[in-house]
Write a protein that binds this DNA or RNA. Structure first.
Lengths: 197, 197
DNA sequence: CATGTAATCGAGAGTACTCTCCAGAATATT
DNA sequence: AATATTCTGGAGAGTACTCTCGATTACATG
């Protein structure tokens, strides 16, 4: 018994992703989102009571979509080094398929105003990072005493580094990017040489 | 024959670095810089006619300080892999010594409003990146046909990745960070396995 | 068709920032 | 001491954005 929505949450968040990818988190103003979808600003406030709520949802939706595939890639049984390489390659492959969402992730939650997020959002973010931490710890164990710093680097930060400059420039990823990320992860975690302590 | 300056450029830029490191480029407003040094806003405009001029100088001064040491580390004669590792380690060591300036570099020039920079600034930035590109090309040659993508990754993006999450969190770098960056660069560029093409 | 409900629409108040302008203050030189 | 010169200090106009609020619209149900 109600008027049907004309601008739904998904539509507004998609617009926010475009804005953030093009010009960074600060470009995601309520006014800009409204203009992007052709709505008056009041309609945006109907979905998201304040700007921090929109930014939180923008960040969380994106990061959760990303993590789902990453965790799946990492969960592959068998050789842990191969699983690590698969996860590293996944980061690049996902970025290639979703360049705008990947560009969102090049910034950190603080850049999306985490300090002002509504109550539930902080916990949702914590759950996500806890999952990632657990997965990293699990792999560290399977690798038999590797440096946790090296593991985090190989599986998360390094593949993002492969992708970063291209995404920032709005350029397509080079053909060998997945392979480079996988190779770097493999070499970094391969047994036989100590990875520090 | 003039009144002595009370707020000089260096002082204002140092304040800008603190603000940018603490809360990102957008926190560097003219008002905030003025408040940080205890001056009225007019005094800031006396040194920098517009905000983009201040942001440009903030970026360029920081990046040039960084590049000087990096280029020196890379220029070491002898084994190119060792030179690469030295450059990678340098990135981490410099970040450890200058965490606030390093935090500035975690963002890109676009985040500092490059599109609005005054005339000379764009050229200064271009000169810097040209030097870096030349150095990277030189090392690629000395390595004998390595993948340029891999070289850039090993010497620049990867060490920044080692350092990024800690700097963003405002946390000190872990003790083994230099070693990890050097190790990763060495393994990535070591001869004997193909690095893609 | 009448009614209830959720959504839209847009004007406008409040706030923060950029930038202008100019009177006055502090020095070096003559 | 007078003068020229550079800088400070602060008020205020213009602009962009956040958020509020009430009137209005469109649909589902009985």
């Amino acid at each position: 018994m109600a008027r049907p929505p004309r601008y739904d949450e998904t539509q507004l968040l998609d617009a926010a992703v475009r804005l953030a990818a093009a010009a960074g988190p600060t470009a995601v103003t309520m006014t800009a989102v409204a203009k992007e979808v052709g709505a008056p600003s009041g309609s945006v406030y109907h979905r998201f009571p304040q700007r921090p709520a929109l930014l939180a949802e923008l960040w969380l939706r994106t990061v959760e979509r990303f993590q789902a595939g990453w965790l799946a890639a990492l969960a592959a049984p068998g050789d842990p080094v191969a699983a690590a390489a698969a996860a590293a390659r996944h980061v690049v492959a996902w970025s290639r398929l979703n360049p705008r969402e990947a560009a969102v992730l090049l910034y950190g939650p603080d850049d999306y105003g985490r300090a002002d997020w509504p109550a539930g959002a902080a916990e949702r973010a914590a759950r996500g990072t806890a999952q990632v931490r657990a997965a990293l710890a699990g792999l560290t164990g399977r690798l038999g005493g590797a440096d946790p710093e090296a593991v985090t680097l190989a599986l998360v930060d390094l593949p993002l580094a492969v992708v970063r400059r291209h995404l920032r420039a709005g350029a397509p990823l080079p053909p060998g990017a997945e392979r480079l990320a996988g190779l770097a992860a493999t070499r970094l975690l391969a047994p036989g040489a100590d990875t520090g302590a």
